[in-house]
Write a protein that binds this DNA or RNA. Structure first.
Lengths: 339, 339
DNA sequence: CTATGGAGGTAAAACGTTTTATGCAATCCT
DNA sequence: AGGATTGCATAAAACGTTTTACCTCCATAG
């Protein structure tokens, strides 16, 4: 009756059974203190035989690590709602992260938005955080910093460039996409980006502008909120065609790209015959569009695995390492293939 | 220096500032005890002004709810690896659940497999669990029960039919799929199911068999492990064609369906001209296949939202309700359209 | 005038760990 | 021989809450 609730067997039970003090058990389990090898071993055997597991909460009270990290996806927060359709890249990263966390003996807690209340009570007690695509002056990052909680980011944090704890993709994919357009001989390439101020948006646009400069093009940039989604991009198309249609459109997000392709079709403009379309993110909608849209594969599984590894090493107190850049790959599909 | 670590301000600080006892603060905050209305209000004001938040760990230590629920996806565990490709339905459910959990003030912890060690330390301290597609004699369910942890399931728990706490899809989608095949005039329909013993597999196969009986067909059932994936299904195709090809194939999982379509194509059998294919789960691969595969939309977002609502009411101690059945919808695509 | 009881409040014991501060032999040095 | 050191183990204090048990006052009933 005494210990039937949670986990059940407590450290006191183990101590009693092993004929030692509670302290001894704690030390034996955690490899601390100055116990003799035999005592240590004996305690471990007893503990194992009783199937003892230290209660995470009690342990956490003493500021020991909880074994759980948080995962917050900023772009989804920006979208205002968690409609996963077409944002499968985020979910794939999250899922890979969860798997990698398990291998590291960590749990992964999905925390939708850290700035909205009520906050999940445990949110600020977690061992650390993975912040996906933080934006400039990100309030979530600010909150974590103010609470001295360790965090790593997917994509550079634009407001804390000195913090090296991030994983991202290299720009090979984007470069290849632009090179593909160039090879096709198109001249005017329109860039359709999002409005969030995360590094992905910022860097991609910068790359586009630099590419325009080196190849002697005039940049033409349009921004559309991520939240507008496929629908919004589709409705935007007529305005893009006004006053001289571009020969190609680079849509950063897969959702926008799918909308653009749909909008072009609705406007009677044929893709790829009249306009080429490529996208910087290989979302599901890029693959299901007709034609299928050439896209940059950001390798979400690799990202998820890598970021967990980085967080783990940060939590272990390893000295700061350099940021990690994973390869991105351009996948050519029908939307940019004219032959 | 004293309180700079976590959350910061403690209940003792509030008590001191408000000029009352620690007990008074606790009672005021939690609406317990016998404080006067004024005292209660006063304490609340002081606590709010100090930005006090009760530490979740300390609170949890006294068996108060933690504000976090677990989510375990059995089919992914069965797959042995969290490769999200083609299993997007699970992730969409999880993501919708996370969003719904936030609205309810709960965090959602993704727990890959509750039976593998090391278990995330907090795993057994969570308030409750959502188990997606439990199988017969599911060890995860057994573990939860043995620890007296509340849980709800997505899909009926085959081994605990008396437990009404589950959400699932109705069979309208499957019925419509079979009806579509019937309307197309095909005679021999092969059923390709998975090997997991979850309710979805069991019930779908039963429905198929019943349909065969009522329509005077001879059932032909093949099982392929879910883990075999697209590849496995593709390799299976030749054996399915041996000794008289069926006129249609009902693949329960989207991954298998995609593999079957690919395998048919490789074998020189044309779909839908020679064989119709439909699937019971509208995974991404069903949509990206050529031809696109007719599929049952299981409405993952609605499932995720509903299951969180149910768990919440269970945790609130509401009396047991009936199971919830959400509509499933059949989406007809090229793979079953002959015209 | 003394019980009774409710209203309003608090002290102290839990919850299950980890950590800090000690304690006690036995061994070592000079 | 006497003090310092080492090796091993433990008691007790913390961690921040909630809960249990109890206290005091004052009004009301008998």
């Amino acid at each position: 009756m005494s210990t039937h609730q949670r986990g059940g067997v407590t450290i006191r039970d183990v101590a009693r059974r092993a004929g030692v003090s509670v302290t001894a058990v704690s030390h034996a389990i955690n490899g601390k203190g100055t116990l003799s090898a035999e005592t240590r071993e004996h305690i471990k055997v007893v503990a194992a035989s009783m199937n003892y597991r230290a209660d995470a909460l009690a342990r956490g009270l003493r500021r020991a690590p909880l074994g759980v990290v948080g995962f917050v996806i900023r772009p989804l927060d920006a979208l205002g709602e968690y409609r996963p359709e077409g944002v499968d890249v985020f979910l794939r990263v999250a899922s890979a992260a969860a798997a990698a966390a398990l291998d590291a003996g960590l749990g992964l807690m999905l925390v939708p938005d850290l700035t909205r209340t009520p906050l999940p009570p445990l949110a600020l007690s977690l061992d650390g955080y993975i912040v996906m695509n933080p934006v400039r002056e990100d309030p979530v990052v600010a909150l974590l910093r103010s609470h001295d909680i360790e965090y790593v980011t997917l994509g550079r944090d634009p407001s804390h460039p000195e913090n090296p704890a991030w994983v991202s993709n290299d720009d090979r994919g984007n470069r290849a996409a632009l090179a593909d357009l160039e090879r096709s001989g198109v001249r005017e390439v329109l860039y359709l980006g999002g409005t969030a101020h995360d590094a992905w948006n910022l860097d991609s646009e910068e790359l586009y502008r630099a590419w325009c400069t080196t190849t002697g093009r005039v940049p033409r940039v349009v921004h559309l909120p991520e939240g507008a989604g496929t629908q919004g991009a589709e409705e935007l198309v007529p305005s893009l065609l006004e006053g001289g249609a571009p020969e190609a459109i680079f849509c950063l997000t897969g959702r926008h790209a799918a909308g653009v392709v749909a909008g072009l079709s609705a406007a009677g403009v044929r893709c790829p015959e009249q306009i080429l379309v490529v996208t910087g993110s290989d979302a599901e909608q890029a693959r299901t569009s007709r034609p299928a849209i050439s896209a940059v594969d950001l390798q979400p599984e690799a990202l998820g695995t890598a970021i967990v590894g980085m967080l783990k090493s940060v939590l272990d107190g390893a000295p700061p390492q350099d940021p990690v850049l994973l390869a991105s790959r351009y996948r050519r599909r029908g939307s940019s293939r004219r032959n």
